[in-house]
Each structure stands twice: as C-alpha cells, then as structure tokens.
Design a protein around this nucleic acid. Sequence first.
DNA 1: TGAAAAAGTTAAGATAGGTTAATTGATATT
DNA 2: AATATCAATTAACCTATCTTAACTTTTTCA
Lengths: 194, 194
Amino acid sequence: MDYELLIQSISNRVPINDNEKKLITALLKTRKLKKKNFLHQEGDIQQHVAFVKSGCLRSYSIDKNGTEHILQFAPAGWWIADMQSFLNVTPSGISIDAIEDSEAFLLNHTDVEQMYIAVPKMERYFRILAERSLATFQQRLIDALSLTAAERYTNFCKRYPTLIQTLPQKYIASYIGITPEFMSKMLSQPMKKG
Amino acid sequence: MDYELLIQSISNRVPINDNEKKLITALLKTRKLKKKNFLHQEGDIQQHVAFVKSGCLRSYSIDKNGTEHILQFAPAGWWIADMQSFLNVTPSGISIDAIEDSEAFLLNHTDVEQMYIAVPKMERYFRILAERSLATFQQRLIDALSLTAAERYTNFCKRYPTLIQTLPQKYIASYIGITPEFMSKMLSQPMKKG
DNA sequence: TGAAAAAGTTAAGATAGGTTAATTGATATT
DNA sequence: AATATCAATTAACCTATCTTAACTTTTTCA
C-alpha cells in the first residue's frame, strides 16, 4: 500500500528488517486531503504527526494583522506536525493545510508510543529527525536575523530548487518573511547581492 | 561528583536505575570555563555536546557586518551545542562561550553512541529534548517574523524571568534580534503594547 | 468558455528599526 | 584609588521593508 517512501526514510537512518517493517506499517492510517483542506487547524489540539506520501502540505501561523507566516513546507517524504500542540496536548497558533491534493500517513500519540514499544529503534529514527530539524530551524532563525530578504530568497532557491518551481510566489514570500508586494519588487530589480 | 542536576534532567523524562546512572556518569568529562572562554569556535568542528552544571554559556553567530546574534543561552541544567556542526561533522558559523565562570559535562560522538548502547533509553531522553527544543525554535522563528521588538522583549521577560536579572542588556537585545541602541530607546519609552 | 477569484505588479507614502557618533555610567585590572 | 575597558544612553539621520490601493494577469470551476 505504497509504504516505499516511508520505509526508505526510516531505513536510511536505522536498519530495519521485514518484521519490523510490518509492525510499523500496521500502525499507519492513511488520509487524503484535497487542496486547501486542513490537516490541523489553529485552536485545535494536534492529534497526529503526518508523513506526506504525495502532494505537499504546509504549516503556518496567522499573526494579529492577519498575515500568514509559513513555518514549513512538507512535500512527499517529509514529516509535518504542529509539535508545540502535539507535545503539550494543548492548542497552539499553527494550522496545517494541503497546498495541492495530497495523501499522508498519520500516527497519533498512542500509535507513536506503541511503535516505540514494538520497534524501539524508532526512538532513534525520530531522535535523528528531530535533531536535524532542530539544526535547520536554528539556521533559519539566524538567517531571519542576519540576512537581507534577497539573501534569504537565494538561500531558499539553493536549498529547495524543486519547490521553487511549483510553489506560488506568495508562499515563498511568506516563508522567507516578506510581503508578496516586496517580493515582487525585489524580483523585478536587477537582483543585487545574495 | 555533582551529577545531581543531570540525573534530575534525565529522570524527569525517563526512569533510570542506579546501574544506569553509573553507566551514564562514567562517560562524562568535566570542563571548566572562565568567563569569555570558548567552548567552541566558529570554523571548528563541534566535537561535544555540553550539559551546563553551573554558570551560563551562550551560542551565537556573527554576521558579515560583525553583529552577534545569540541563538541560545544555557544556564545550569541546560544542554548546548552547535548541532549543525556536531551532526554533520563539519565547521559551521556558530561559536559558544561562557558568559560567566562555568562548569559543564561534555560528551563527544563516541561517548554519545556508547551511551545509547549502554542505556538505550537515552535515545528517548535525547529525542524528547530535541523535540521540545525544536518546538521552541519554531515558536521563536514565528515570533521573529510576526512580533514587534517590544513584544519579543516582553515574551523574553515572561519566559526567562531569571535570566533577565543577570544578563547584560545587550545580550538580550542580540537574542531578540535588535541593536543595543534600539533596545535602550525602547526601554526608555513608556512601553506601549506587547 | 467565460466570469469570478486568486496571484502578481506597480507605485506613492509611511515606519520600525538601524547607523553613527558623541556622552555618560559601570566594572575590571594595575 | 586610578585608569582602561566595557555597557548603556541619547539623538540626528538613514533605509529596508511595509501599507494601501489601483491595476493586470493567471487560474479556477460553474
């Protein structure tokens, strides 16, 4: 049932045998999301972590002026969740929706804990993922504090050459922390530095 | 040898017995740092993760204008490392130094891996730490993109009421992403919103 | 296929926060 | 205790980015 991507993601980090694969995949539920549908909405408690099989999700928060700030894009092969909400079992300010028609595997708290019991190696897998993701967000914070918008844009293009092709420009603006209007102006200018 | 703080930090998240405590503490090396001394310097490969026993460390990067951006403060009881460098075994742009005379436990790559073998639960401990830290950095990025300097300052005061007492104001400015001059101006004004 | 919605563009005017530089106050160190 | 270094303040001026708003282009879907 199309577990290939996920099994790849896991076995790239920790070796697992066929039995372990079965134990893991047995816990997964599948969820289809039409474009613009929510996986998780601000104010709700995030019940699941999601692994994207196909399509693309995004997480974002909306500030008091109504401006969206995109925290993460999750194309196929990526995990996504409102971790603040999931970990604290409390509502937080983040929403997750589908940028295009998508399909994802879901795990709730119980599933995850059962997975750790059935296949303790999965603690290691998720530790590695969390550590890498942490390092990425640290870098992104530094970039937000020390680079110009143009530099952040070129960084984005380098790091996500695929996404740049498919995403509406205003999503990229939101991710790098500028308005669509300024992004447009920036791109029309002869592209200095960065 | 003063393992109390660390043992507390671990057993708050995963239950460990006396034997496991011994296995863990056996791997620790202790390092004293005088104020302003480096634990890790930009351009070097970070060899250790550090658990602060006493004092306070900070991690920061310096941008091309020479401005410091503080990524993290680590008072007693906190872990700190240049994760980018530690995980990729590659130099990165982050430095770590002591804000006051400090003492820390250090673990290098081999130590950590040995710890996981000797006490597999430690994968869980570090998974939990990394996940929480990730959630914190995600929130901080959102704050950087959506709040004013004054709002970020009040957030900081709420979240770290102890640090605010002891830290030079310019470090707080650097952490919340503004210049010391602007911080000074901001604090002298009748403190609107936030 | 055509109307409505969404995305992107342009431009004028506004502002949060930065820069520079000079001044004062606080802490180290001899 | 005196001097040198570091931290904080103030103020004038500057700029990257935002806001608003009107317009054009592209996409969606009835």
